[in-house]
């Protein structure tokens, strides 16, 4: 039996999208996502809301090993009709947990200089947010914003800094925690903080 997904697709997807959009527009800001959505564990409802809001038959999806569960696969096929691909490089949306990220972010679809929008969006399931790991600046941020994610270390943020260095090509990242979302697009500059 597949979980039901959004209670009312048009309305809940609209609510979820507003949160996703504001998160992308205000990098590092943690927003509550209250969409009425059910999802099979270990897929978090917040990550499921992102999937059901943005993915469909036009968007190849890759699931990390921890999420590559029969019930989740069936859930995404049933509600989103999204084709699942075997390699993260072939995906437009990548769903992973902080514990099993695809090995090299630079190998995900980066877009081209002619079409930088043809790039992957990485959705990472995380336990929560703790500021202090990195300082973010750039479009969407007034001044600077201190940010950090439980379970993501210096190596990840180094990769994100390299991702920003490739701007305008590169990937965009959405962090999905229980009941919360934040995002760091490629436009965001990243400075490591001493304490990290």
């Amino acid at each position: 039996m597949t979980e039901r997904g959004f209670a009312d697709v048009a309305i809940e997807a609209a609510h979820a999208f507003r949160v996703i959009m504001q998160a992308m527009a205000r990098p590092g800001r943690v927003l509550d996502i209250g969409a009425d959505v059910r999802a099979p564990a270990p897929l978090l409802p917040s990550a499921a809301a992102v999937a059901l809001t943005l993915c469909d038959f036009q968007t190849p999806v890759w699931l990390s090993p921890q999420l590559d569960d029969e019930r989740i696969v069936h859930y995404l096929r049933f509600h989103a009709g999204a084709p699942l691909v075997a390699e993260p490089q072939a995906a437009q949306f990548i769903f992973a947990t902080s514990a099993d990220l695809p090995p090299q972010l630079g190998l995900l679809q980066q877009g081209t200089h002619d079409y930088p929008d043809r790039s992957a969006t990485l959705v990472i399931q995380v336990a929560g947010f703790v500021p202090g790991a990195v300082e973010l600046s750039g479009p969407g941020i007034r001044g600077r914003e201190s940010f950090g994610v439980v379970g993501l270390d210096g190596a990840f943020w180094m990769a994100m800094a390299e991702n920003h260095a490739r701007f305008p090509v590169g990937i965009d990242v959405i962090f999905a925690a229980p009941g919360q979302l934040a995002a760091v697009p490629r436009s965001t500059a990243i400075r490591m903080l001493e304490s990290a």
């Binding site: 997807a13 959009m21 469909d56 701007f167 305008p168 697009p185 436009s187």
Partner: peptide
Amino acid sequence: EQTKRMIRRAILKAIAIPGYQAP
């Protein structure tokens, strides 16, 4: 809903690449 998803994806990419015209 499918049209909205397509437009929403374009909006997110447009936000991530400020000033770039996303088709």
